[in-house]
Simulated scan of single mutants.
Amino acid sequence: MEIAKYQGSGNDFILIDNRDGKVYTLLDKLGITIKDFVVKVCTFHTGVGADGLILIEEPKDRENDFSWQFFNSDGSVAEMCGNGSRCAVRFAYEKGICKEEVKFETLAGIIKAYVKEGGKVVKVKLTKPKDYRKVSLEVDGLKLDGSFINTGVPHFVAKVDNLENFPVVKYGRLIRFHKEFEPKGTNVNFIEPLDDQTIRIRTYERGVESETLACGTGATASALISYMEGYVNKRPVKVITKGGEVLLVDFDDKMEEVYLEGRVVKVFEGVLSYEILDV
């Protein structure tokens, strides 16, 4: 089976063109679930290794270019992924599935995107943010005053001192499973404003269950909240990720139209050996 791997800001994803349903045919033949498949392929050292896996499929509405099935590395399904969507768009563009202006179907709704520089830069228009609220938490003796917002998936955002040395995994995991965010939990972002247009971010991702080098919807959530809280006052907001790359988050005054833009890198194309799927 042909696969490809792309990364956006250090978030890496395995992409498969499943418009013919070949993945499901293979799973039926092998007698394994899609969750087992995703976990085996995404596991580092024994598999390909990635933060997630994306299946590109036929759209339900022919006005759209494609639909996707997005899976975190633990096999769970996510409604949306900002960096994953940018990688999916470049993959689809290079396969001739879409042109420079793109519309595709996700569980979070229809996503619009724009291909720039031949796919090396992709800008996506995310779904309208919702469920914003301020949240105060106390976890393991640490009091955090932050905010919650859904930018396609749920995110908690808090400003902390000394972000570089902050124990992201420890507190990220505690907040991710906190009763405040039951039953599905939340992604967790810790931020540090640098100037009136720039923030640094570190993210604990639900589904990956660890810190990742970047998170597109997390960068978006952090940029929006930073603007609302007055940490920054210029747009687009520049978000420096753990991986060191800069994502641009732009939005209108009402925050109804929100855009995420950044580089997408093609890592490799290859053929998946079914030997790693042995059970």
Rank of each mutant, 00 (worst) to 15 (best):
D195N: 14
I199F: 07
R202C: 06
G207R: 02
N162L: 07
F177N: 09
V168E: 07
R206H: 07
K170R: 15
V168N: 09
I199Q: 11
T203N: 12
P154L: 01
E182Q: 10
E192G: 08
K170H: 12
E205Y: 06
L163P: 11
G152Y: 07
R200A: 15
T212G: 03
F177S: 08
F181S: 07
G185E: 03
E211M: 10
E182C: 03
T198M: 10
T151L: 05
K170Y: 08
D161V: 10
N162E: 14
R173C: 01
H178V: 08
P154A: 08
E180T: 15
K170E: 14
F181V: 12
V168Q: 01
T198W: 11
L194K: 15
H178I: 07
V157H: 01
K184H: 10
I199Y: 11
F177A: 10
N150H: 14
Y171A: 03
N162V: 05
N165L: 11
T203A: 13
P183S: 04
R206L: 03
I201Y: 10
K170M: 03
F177L: 13
T212E: 04
G207S: 06
H178A: 05
P183V: 02
K170L: 15
K179D: 13
E211Q: 15
G152H: 06
V169S: 13
H155V: 06
T151V: 13
E180V: 12
E164M: 11
E164F: 12
E205G: 04
F156L: 03
I175M: 06
I199H: 11
R176C: 15
E164G: 00
D161N: 14
S210P: 01
K159V: 15
P154G: 07
E164N: 13
L174V: 04
F177V: 15
F166E: 04
N187D: 11
Q197S: 14
L174P: 05
V153N: 14
L194W: 08
R176L: 01
V188T: 13
L194G: 08
